[in-house]
């Protein structure tokens, strides 16, 4: 029972981490290696607005999500647009931005164990005999709702459909009047906001430390590779596989092997099925 409950929670938090990365890659084919940095900076911005400026928690969250969105969009507009289409340069450029943000934060004095965000709700409840605090429950619900919301967004709204079109065939979308640079910028903004949402939901469970930016990046890449790059539904399912695998490892082997699971999942996927679990696009091409 413990495994089931905490496995689900862990999976949802992994899905939250990976969604933004999957979305940006799926639409603009830009592997956003600054994803972890965007996650952390959202935590610190919220912390600053809440603790230093003294805004209410809710307002601080909304503001910092906006900041994150703008940050993501300007990252594309001013830097990545210049290297678009060259995957190695995209990785180097976005990783460099990530490094600047993370190490800049460290340099600016954001280190140590003193930065925490409050949880949404104190207290806990019992699920099947396992104590779970309210915050984790809220996180799981919001996480699942977010995935559902994203699905509705990409299938029923004008912008969402345009993003989907671009993800599948950029040039065909262009012929229909969809501006690919604008859409990639929107996708980048969305990705950054999703990273921010993940941060705000997950960070209150621990301290905000710069190092976890790298951790988040690795986890989101793992989720995306296992799920099939570019497929965010795949990423969601992969999050569950890795999430449960991690919890099982913690219970039966030892908690310090947790990270190995993610890396192992990447390696195994690349050996056995390089297109990932849901990399349908490639498979379809192979069949044709």
């Amino acid at each position: 029972m413990e495994i089931l409950v905490y496995g689900t929670i862990n999976s949802v938090s992994l899905a939250l981490m990976g969604l933004g990365f999957a979305m940006v890659y799926g639409i603009s084919r830009v592997p956003n290696f600054a994803h972890g940095a965007l996650y952390i900076i959202c935590g610190f911005v919220t912390w600053t607005l809440f603790q230093i400026v003294g805004l209410s928690y809710f307002v601080a969250i909304i503001l910092s999500l906006c900041v994150n969105g703008i940050l993501g969009m300007s990252m594309y507009r001013f830097v990545l647009i210049r290297v678009r289409g060259m995957s190695i340069s995209e990785i180097i450029a976005s990783y460099a931005i990530g490094l600047v943000i993370l190490e800049g934060l460290r340099f600016g004095g954001f280190r140590g164990m003193t930065y925490t965000l409050p949880v949404f709700m104190e207290g806990s409840l019992m699920i099947g005999g396992v104590p779970v605090d309210y915050h984790r429950v809220v996180m799981t619900i919001i996480g699942v709702a977010l995935v559902a919301g994203l699905w509705v967004f990409t299938h029923y709204t004008r912008i969402g459909l345009a993003l989907q079109g671009m993800a599948q065939d950029e040039r065909a979308a262009m012929m229909l009047g969809i501006d690919s640079d604008f859409m990639a910028m929107v996708a980048m903004g969305f990705g950054a906001v999703l990273a921010g949402v993940a941060a705000i939901l997950i960070l209150p469970l621990g301290n905000i430390v710069v190092e976890s930016g790298y951790h988040v990046l690795i986890m989101s890449i793992a989720v995306c590779i296992v799920g099939g790059l570019g497929s965010w539904m795949g990423a969601f399912f992969a999050a569950f596989i890795i999430g449960y695998a991690q919890i099982l490892t913690v219970v039966y082997i030892g908690s310090h092997f947790q990270m190995v699971v993610a890396i192992l999942a990447i390696i195994l996927t690349l050996i056995l099925k390089p297109s990932g679990l849901f990399g349908q696009q490639k498979e379809l091409e192979e069949r044709v």
């Binding site: 989907q164 079109g165 599948q168 065939d169 040039r171 065909a172 012929m175 349908q280 696009q281 379809l284």
Partner: peptide, 10 residues
């Protein structure tokens, strides 16, 4: 376009 280029997964 030539070869139609539909959005195959939609």
């Amino acid at each position: 376009p030539e070869r139609r280029r539909l959005f195959k997964e939609s």
